[in-house]
């Protein structure tokens, strides 16, 4: 029994169908519990008032925006090295989810920034980095859409993902250098003085778990859809070749 068995599309579909309900339900539970707890059962922050509560959407979506790209990077590497089609399709399936996560992070950031910093948008390094990440996502998705041959598309987008990752990290440093920001430092690291207090911390953890589970569920589901789409295409080609 090895992990690579799931590279077989049939095996992947069978297993993902079995585990998907669990992910949907637990993602829903975590999100409902985390958000309700966060929105209604935590005190207002003494400086930020109730605006602080947008943290329960902002931080998890921002984390997932980055994690989705990392997952795409790993999937791309697996495709380039081991040529498992499911891996390439999983990367393709994750990209639009990453786009939406990045958008949520940007929009909630703007909504939070308005009362806190007095502006909807500031060229703060972290906000700017997310905007750049958003552009990378758009390019990646557009390249997938533009190429007809699925293997060619998988190869080209994988290389783009690799090269893009290097440039995304470079951009992050460049942007930091370019403008020292307004953002608070690390919110969640365990040893920092400025760490947020437990009252906010636990519901936030639940929300993050909810976003992670939701991401996994969405990617599994979308990968299944991509596999079925490929299957339909293959069957059509076979019909045409036989005719």
């Amino acid at each position: 029994m090895s992990l690579w068995e799931y590279a077989n599309p049939k095996k992947f579909l069978a297993t993902s169908e079995r585990v998907l309900p669990f992910f949907w339900v637990s993602a829903g539970l975590c999100l409902v519990v985390g958000l309700v707890w966060g929105f209604f059962f935590t005190p207002d922050d003494f400086r930020q008032g109730s605006t602080v509560k947008i943290i329960y959407l902002h931080v998890p979506s921002a984390m997932m925006a980055i994690n989705a790209w990392v997952m795409m990077l790993l999937a791309s590497l697996i495709w380039l090295i081991r040529r498992h089609h499911v891996s390439a399709l999983a990367a393709r399936a994750a990209a639009p989810v990453g786009v939406v996560m990045t958008l949520i992070a940007l929009v909630t950031g703007a909504i939070w920034g308005q009362p806190m910093w007095g502006t909807w948008w500031a060229w703060d390094p972290r906000l700017t980095s997310f905007l750049i990440l958003f552009l990378f996502y758009l390019g990646y998705v557009a390249l997938w859409e533009a190429i007809e041959n699925p293997d060619t598309a998988a190869d080209l987008t994988s290389v783009l993902c690799l090269v893009g990752s290097v440039f995304a990290v470079l951009s992050r440093y460049a942007v930091n250098f370019w403008n020292q920001g307004l953002h608070q430092g690390a919110t969640l690291s365990l040893d920092k003085e400025e760490n947020i207090s437990d009252v906010f911390y636990f519901p936030l953890l639940v929300c993050i778990a909810g976003f992670v589970l939701l991401f996994i569920a969405l990617v599994l589901y979308r990968t299944g859809t991509e596999i079925r789409a490929r299957r339909i295409k293959a069957l059509r080609l076979r019909e045409r070749a036989a005719a």
Binding site: N8, P9, K10, H85, R230, R231, A234, L235, R238, A241, A242
Partner: peptide, 12 residues
């Protein structure tokens, strides 16, 4: 042969 496919599509 018509319908011969690569390993991925063949897996269906």
């Amino acid at each position: 042969a018509p319908g011969s496919m690569d390993a991925f599509e063949g897996a269906f």
